[in-house]
Every structure is written in structure tokens, then in C-alpha cells.
Nucleic acid binder design. Structure first.
Length: 480
RNA sequence: CGGGGCGUAGCGCAGCCUGGUAGCGCACCUGCCUUGGGCGCAGGGGGUCGGGCGUUCAAAUCGCCCCGCCCCGACCA
């Protein structure tokens, strides 16, 4: 028996993750371009399914897709003080183009609030132009020091929604609406439970009034910020002079929002469901839902088996793995590593009995099914896998969430946690939204993930740093 | 930027200390054989040993310089 190409989770979780991504043919490190990755066909197909889940919901909530330039005049970033401070360290800048030094360098967009603010100011004159609801699917570049496939790469793919509204109330509704869209895609399509909440002032988006996030728990207990939605207030409106005339004829600055989710979601998908054998994909995001692996010895068997395999595959919408020169066993491992939810085994014994063997990727269980019921059996299995994966993830989240009532307690729970070793928890504690409190957590490399919108615990309590009253517990964890 | 490690076939590595025909496993190609969880046998192709300079009759191996990558730290709305 060949040795598994995948490091065991218990041995080194971070290496396991990298192995699953590479062996599952999702992506590989670009190597020749520091910190970047090549998204391979299997990974890109997952991304396309995710895009579809998101995009249809964006459109259903009234947004239209647009596209803005990759390059942004450097001066644009400086117009919003917090924004430039937050992003400057991680900018890639173009200083030479067409063989000549540019008078004003361009930055490669790390996000597009600034350039979109510029155009909003051209497009918006009247209350009749509002709300302005646009979304962009794009690539962005952020020069991070530490990269990991999908979770944090120098260049990544994402969508960024940008909206402008006449009132703060309306903008705030939009912020929560889109956070809800993200949560729905995470939970329904990705089978990944999330906690909706507000970021602390220390952790918010550079230039926002408030940021909101959905936070998921990976198998090693680390948190992953899966998507964000920002209440930008009038900050960018003022920086880019985006004004409109209200019903009374007065000029007002617009209230803006922005919200984004990226290819990072694929990393979350991997670390929510996959196992020591490799990738596990929830059926709704599996590019291939089922594969038929034919098994035969003699030429005569081969013909009969392949014929039945193609008939069944057409019936259930599966692919037949009819590659020659590879044994059935090798094919089982191949599809297992790639996360295909259901594998149907079909050999001479099955032909004789008019059945087939259905194997679930998530549980590894096999059972025999009459060929006549193939379609129904596969559909039922896919449905069961989708809901079982969600249930298991939800259970893990609950099992690894703990309460803490002092800083010492929180620290002792999280101090030794790393991405490699695992053992992470979501520590629920009362903490004031004050950068000095965030700073105390940083001493042991933890952060406030968010302040949940819905309090599922014991309501008000005393901040474990300042002793001041706060109205609910926050999520403290180590994060990617 | 500080500390550590590594560059030898597509991938993973040995060889270097003690200079003397560039090797192993996987992958790949051909043929036969096999196929219910990574088949086997036989034959075969593939290398400026990261780059430059030096020492030497002779350098993957010794010396100097340079480049790149990885890990830990710092950094990561």
C-alpha cells in the first residue's frame, strides 16, 4: 500500500491543509511570483460555483455588476486618512510604464473604495440617483508578509460591493442585508456555520465607521473571517466629494457601504470539511457530484461494464472514469483526494445482480443500490452529505466554544494555540470595544473576532480588562 | 530587517566531510500482464548539479561573491 501523500491533521494541521489543497488539485504555489498561487481547474470550478451562489443573490437584492480599473492614482489613497494609513504598508506601486517614469505612480488596487468614490461623485447628483448599488468581481493585490494558499495570497480574487445611499439608516440596512447574504451562502452552500457580528474599532476596515463580519471556526479551532460588510458613513463621500441634492434642494454627502468576500472562502471550505484522506466538498459546491468507476477483468466484461456505467452516469449526471491503464483502486484514491461527494462502483458482480455500490466521500460508507434506483439514491446521498456536513461543523463550533470570565482564563485557553498545533477555541468573554482591550489580547496573539449581533449567552457583564459594564460577550480567538 | 535551513531530472531526495564516469524512489514513454482500495515484470527517455569568479591535471564536491526559495520572529483593516 502506497503511503498517503497527505500529512495527518494530528501531526501538523498547517501542512495537512497545504497537502489537501495541492493533492485536491485546487491550487499550487506560484513560486516564481512570491506569495501568489495558481488556481487549478478543480479549484477554479469551486470558485465559479461560489461566485454563482453569491452573484445570483447580489442581483436578487438589486445590485448590478460593473468593472473599474486595476490601477489607481496613488493620490487617491491619501484622501481618506485612515484608509491610507491602513493600506500603505501593503501596496504594490507602478512607477514606470511605457519605459518612462510616471509623474504620479499608480497603485495596484488593494480595494476600490477610492476609485469608485471618484466615479460616484461624477454619477450622483440627485436623490433620484440613489441608492447606487454596484458590485465588482476583480483581483486585488496586498503585499502581505506571510501568505498561505487561498487564506492570504498576495494577489487574490474577490468581489467588492459598493453602494451609496441618501440616509444612514438605509446604508446600515444594506450593510446588514449583505452580511446576511454572506451568512446564507456560508451556511447553506458551504455548509459552514458562521457567527455574524460587529468588528471592534481596532479591527474595523481602514476608513469605515463600523465593520461587520461573519466568522467561521476551522477544524483546528482558529477563526476565519469569511466575509466583511462595512458601514463607511460619509467618510469616502467627503473624501471624494460625493454629494446629492435632497428633496429640499440641499446638498448632502452620500452614505456608503462596501462588502467583500474572496477566494479565501475556498480555504475555509477545505478547513471545515476535509479529512486525512484529502478534500471533502459539500455537494452544492462540488464541480463533479458523482463519478462512476468501472471495474472489469476481461475484454468482454469491459464492454458490458462500460456500457452500463455510461447508462447510469447519464441517468444520475455523473462522469465515468474510463481511463485505461489505471486500476480501479488507483481511481478510488484519485477521486477521494479531489473531494467528489459520491463514487459509484460498478463491476461484474454488480451487473449480475443489477445493482451498484454507492460510496459517500464524507463518511466513507458504502452500500449496494439497485441500478433502477440510481438517480434517487444519488440525489438522496448528496442531500444527506450536505446536511450532515453542516451538522458536524455546527457541532464542532459548539463543542469548541467556551466562556471565560477573566483575562487570565482567556489567555490560558489560547496561549499555546497555533495553526500547526491546533487546539483553538472561541472564547466568549465580556470585553469593552476599546483599542486598549484589543491590545491586551495581542499579547498572546489573540483578537476579538467580532461582537455577535445576537447574544446567545448571558447578556451584560463586566469587561475582563477594565471592569466596566458591557452588554454582551465577544468572540475572542486566534485567527488566520 | 533579525535568527535558522535549503537550492542536484517534473516531484521528493542521496552524493559533498575525504575532488576522479551524476545516482535512487515516484512520475513519464514502450511492450506484456493486471483491474472490487495506490498491480507486476522487462526495456527506455529526461540533468548547463541556482549563477559567477577562483584553486586544481580534474569541481556537484574546496574557497570567495551573488541570486532565489522555505521556516521562525516582526507585519497582516
Amino acid at each position: 500500500m502506497a503511503e498517503s501523500p497527505i500529512t495527518l491533521r494530528a501531526q501538523d494541521y498547517a501542512t495537512w491543509y497545504q497537502d489537501v489543497v495541492v493533492q485536491g488539485d485546487l491550487a499550487e504555489p506560484a513560486e516564481i511570483v512570491k506569495g501568489c498561487m495558481v488556481i487549478k481547474a478543480n479549484g477554479y470550478a469551486v470558485w465559479e460555483l461560489l461566485q454563482h451562489e453569491l452573484d445570483t443573490r447580489f442581483k436578487a437584492t438589486g445590485h448590478q455588476n460593473v468593472y473599474f480599473p486595476l490601477l489607481i492614482p496613488q493620490g487617491f489613497l491619501r484622501r481618506e486618512a485612515e484608509h491610507v494609513e491602513g493600506f500603505s504598508p501593503e501596496l504594490a506601486v507602478v512607477t514606470i510604464a511605457g519605459g518612462k517614469e510616471l509623474e504620479e505612480p499608480y497603485v495596484i488596487r488593494p480595494t476600490s473604495e477610492t476609485i469608485i468614490g471618484h466615479f460616484f461623485s461624477k454619477w450622483i447628483q440627485s436623490w433620484r440617483d440613489l441608492p447606487m448599488l454596484v458590485n465588482q468581481w476583480a483581483n486585488v493585490v496586498r503585499w502581505e508578509l506571510r501568505t498561505r494558499l487561498f487564506l492570504r495570497t498576495t494577489e487574490f480574487l474577490w468581489q467588492e460591493g459598493h453602494t451609496a445611499h441618501a440616509t444612514h439608516e438605509e446604508a446600515f440596512e444594506e450593510v446588514l442585508r449583505m452580511l446576511g447574504v454572506y451568512a446564507e451562502v456560508a451556511e447553506d452552500a458551504m455548509a459552514m456555520p458562521v457567527i455574524r457580528g460587529m468588528k471592534t474599532q481596532a479591527e474595523k476596515f481602514a476608513g469605515a465607521l463600523h465593520s461587520y463580519s461573519i466568522e467561521a471556526m476551522m477544524q483546528n479551532g482558529l477563526a476565519l473571517q469569511a466575509a466583511t460588510s462595512h458601514d463607511l458613513g460619509q467618510n469616502f463621500g467627503k473624501a471624494f466629494d460625493v454629494r446629492f441634492q435632497n428633496h429640499a434642494g440641499q446638498l448632502e454627502y452620500v452614505w456608503q457601504t462596501s462588502w467583500g468576500a474572496s477566494t479565501r472562502l475556498i480555504g475555509g471550505l477545505v478547513m471545515t470539511h476535509s479529512d486525512d484522506k484529502g478534500l471533502v466538498l459539500p455537494p452544492k459546491l462540488a464541480p463533479l457530484k458523482a463519478v462512476v468507476v468501472p471495474i472489469y477483468r476481461k475484454d468482454q466484461e469491459r464492454g458490458e461494464v462500460l456500457e452500463a456505467a455510461h447508462r447510469i452516469a447519464a441517468d444520475v449526471g455523473a462522469r465515468v472514469d474510463d481511463r485505461e491503464g489505471q486500476t480501479a483502486g488507483a481511481k478510488f484514491f484519485y477521486w477521494e483526494r479531489r473531494g467528489v461527494p459520491v463514487v459509484l462502483e460498478l463491476g461484474p458482480r454488480d451487473l449480475a445482480s443489477g445493482s451498484m455500490v454507492l460510496k459517500r466521500r464524507d463518511t466513507g460508507t458504502k452500500h449496494s443500490v439497485p441500478q433502477a434506483e440510481a438517480r434517487r439514491a444519488v440525489a438522496a446521498a448528496l442531500e444527506a452529505i450536505q446536511s450532515d456536513l453542516y451538522r458536524a461543523a455546527k457541532q464542532r463550533l459548539a463543542a469548541n466554544t467556551v466562556l471565560a470570565n477573566s483575562m487570565r482564563e482567556a489567555e490560558s485557553i489560547l496561549a499555546e494555540v497555533t495553526a500547526e498545533r491546533g487546539g483553538g477555541k472561541f472564547v466568549m468573554a465580556h470585553l469593552k470595544d476599546d483599542p486598549r482591550c484589543d491590545a491586551r489580547l495581542k499579547e498572546f496573539k489573540a483578537t476579538v473576532r467580532n461582537i455577535p449581533l445576537v447574544d446567545e449567552y448571558d447578556g451584560p457583564g463586566k469587561c475582563i480588562v477594565t471592569g466596566e459594564p458591557v452588554d454582551r460577550r465577544v468572540v475572542i480567538a486566534k485567527a488566520y
